[in-house]
């Protein structure tokens, strides 16, 4: 009883983690399955066919690459514009600033179905051919909001006196941005870009409305689901998960290292003798 009380939180935590990771684990495990029929549902036999022949099913790799491409292009564009908007909103007072601040939240608050269908209506009205371009336009639109919000928060936390100090120390406006502002805001921008890419790669609803005949990875899976999802999808999904995991772990590691190097040292460590050792490590 006592043991239970002490470890209850840990047990609950582990249960929740299991709950969160079971689907991912199932996907990964099933990528090594050799299904009996069309449906990769029950375990049959171990095999690495799917991994050895990732593009074995027609359309899988094409749609995967399409999604990657869309994600990269829309993330880059949205990050650049979103960062610029964030700077404008934080640094300058202009007419319409507060309403811009509000409007920038709209794409995040609008239900995706509404946004996807309205965009479709717009493109149809303009007789704009549906395809990769329309999907990219749609993705840029909602990623920008996330970038603006993330970068804005970072910028607002930036002490304006640091930039004044840079100017005082002979840094032109350009050099101030290059050597002080950008390095301090960069973690926010990178975070925003990673989030943006994930959102774009993952998006189904808005893409589906505006893709026309284009098949993105989520659209491919959706289509395949009705006929039986090929094992390659599991393998690719596992691959994406692994890549994401590496990215997250790397960023955690980097920020851990940085935090560690910024940590206030205990008093006895402040003597010059230990400093030398420290600074070399």
């Amino acid at each position: 009883m006592n043991w239970l009380r002490k470890n209850l939180i840990a047990i609950i935590g582990i249960l929740v983690l299991i709950y969160l990771f079971i689907p991912i684990a199932v996907i990964a495990v099933m990528s090594f399955n050799k299904p009996e029929g069309k449906f990769n549902i029950s375990w049959n036999q171990f095999s690495t066919d799917a991994w050895q022949n990732l593009c074995g099913v027609p359309g899988v790799c094409d749609s995967f690459l399409v999604s990657i491409q869309i994600g990269l292009i829309s993330t880059v564009v949205a990050t650049i514009f979103g960062t610029m908007i964030a700077f404008a909103l934080v640094r300058y007072r202009f007419r319409g600033r507060s309403s811009t601040n509000l409007l920038i939240f709209l794409p995040m608050a609008t239900p995706e179905v509404v946004m996807g269908s309205s965009l479709l209506a717009l493109f149809l009205n303009l007789r704009f051919p549906l395809g990769e371009v329309t999907v990219i336009i749609a993705h840029i639109m909602f990623i920008i909001s996330f970038v603006v919000v993330t970068v804005k928060a970072r910028l607002q936390g930036l002490d304006p006196r640091l930039e004044e100090a840079a100017r005082d120390l002979y840094a032109s406006p350009r050099a101030t941005f290059r050597y002080v502002t950008l390095p301090l805001v960069l973690p926010g921008i990178i975070g925003a870009a990673l989030l943006g890419f994930a959102l774009s790669f993952d998006d189904f609803i808005i893409s589906f409305f505006n893709a026309g005949t284009l098949v993105t990875f989520p659209i491919f899976i959706w289509g395949a689901a009705q006929r039986g999802i090929p094992v390659q999808v599991n393998a690719l999904a596992t691959l994406v998960f692994l890549v994401a995991l590496v990215v997250v772990l790397t960023s955690q590691f980097v920020s851990y290292r940085r935090r560690k190097s910024l940590e206030i040292l205990p008093e006895e460590d402040r003597s010059p003798a230990t400093v030398d050792v420290m600074s070399r490590s």
């Binding site: 006196r161 640091l162 100090a165 005082d168 032109s172 002080v180």
Partner: peptide
């Protein structure tokens, strides 16, 4: 940034 003047800020403002 053109002035031959430098400042020690109250908050230090170290980078």
């Amino acid at each position: 940034y053109q002035r031959p003047v430098n400042t020690v800020f109250q908050s230090y403002a170290l980078f």
